[in-house]
Write a protein that binds this DNA or RNA. Structure first.
Lengths: 172, 172
DNA sequence: CAAGATACGTCAATATGGCTGACATAAATT
DNA sequence: AATTTATGTCAGCCATATTGACGTATCTTG
């Protein structure tokens, strides 16, 4: 009675019969679903959503990020960012400073209040990660990092990705 | 000039100073961003969004899934599912069959058309996964699976998760 | 059998977080 | 001086999620 994968497989072969990585596809779905879910309850208490989390997270982690950089990282439009960013500014989680070299730029910095929120949320996610790597040796954890890094598009890296990958561009 | 992680770390220590797994947190964000992005362009050609993808994917993979099961897996309300499911039914990607034991149930099955779409999308994601595990030996790939499985909540597994984890419940 | 619970569908209203397009301002560049 | 760039903002639209209420068919139970 319980639904099983591929129970009709023989009479309805999939269009392209090459080996598909169903297991990893679904593990990624569930792992990410629960991973981001950790923060949701906490965010709700602050009246924020996942969009706020993404913004305040990257601003905290990469102080002095420009608005344009943030747009690259989050892959959203400035209009979408605008509403969320304005709330975080108004409520004192983020401050703007005019760029020294280029006074058009608004460099973004998290306040202590912002850092505290990000730290709390990162703590929840870190707990999950630590639970997950229990029993995996350091080499195995490095394999997981290698896998995740290799899952990321490198053809047009933004500023944050350059930092993560060591500041070297893929093509050049 | 480039923003660097923790450049203000010394004068503003985070609230909880325990080791946070910033690297894995961000790798998961970028990896999932690009992973789900693979399907977006293809979906647009069909006039569908990510919500449609999730539904047709799990219906294809677990034929005979009940509506209630799908709600558990996707963690959305029946009202949200309703519109998306109706479109997939109307356009012939999914069919419903009345349950044999319980005639209130509407068991969901993908049509050939639905399977073809899911196969195409899974192919794109499989390509990315195959690229990512190039150079990782079979033991390493199994480590990646182990990690992803351990990232998933097991306290209240739905039907699909039970299938993925071998049909055994955590508590009982 | 009657009553209640369950599975599903649907209507209505609302919120979040994306989008496009247009336009404004200040500051840098040419 | 003219143009480009970085940012902000107004207005409206779309996709996807929510809660609450209600209807109907069907199964379960007293």
């Amino acid at each position: 009675m319980a639904a099983q994968p591929d129970s009709r497989g023989s009479d309805h072969p999939p269009a392209a019969a090459r080996d598909l990585r169903w297991d990893i596809i679904e593990l990624l779905f569930f792992a990410y679903r629960d991973f981001v879910g950790d923060a949701d309850q906490e965010l709700e208490a602050f009246g924020f959503g996942r969009a706020h989390h993404r913004v305040i997270h990257f601003v905290t982690r990469y102080p002095g990020l420009k608005v344009a950089d943030l747009l690259d990282v989050l892959r959203i439009t400035k209009q979408s960012l605008g509403r969320v960013l304005k709330q975080l500014l108004d409520e004192g989680y983020i401050v703007q400073k005019t760029g020294n070299n280029d006074r058009r730029q608004r460099l973004l910095y998290a306040t202590l209040k912002g850092e505290a929120l990000v730290g709390k949320l990162a703590g929840l996610q870190t707990d999950r990660i630590n639970r997950a790597i229990t029993g995996i040796d350091p080499a195995g954890v490095e394999t997981v990092r290698t896998f995740l890094r290799a899952m990321i598009d490198r053809d047009d890296p933004d500023k944050v990705l350059e930092a993560i990958f060591g500041g070297r561009k893929t093509r050049e």
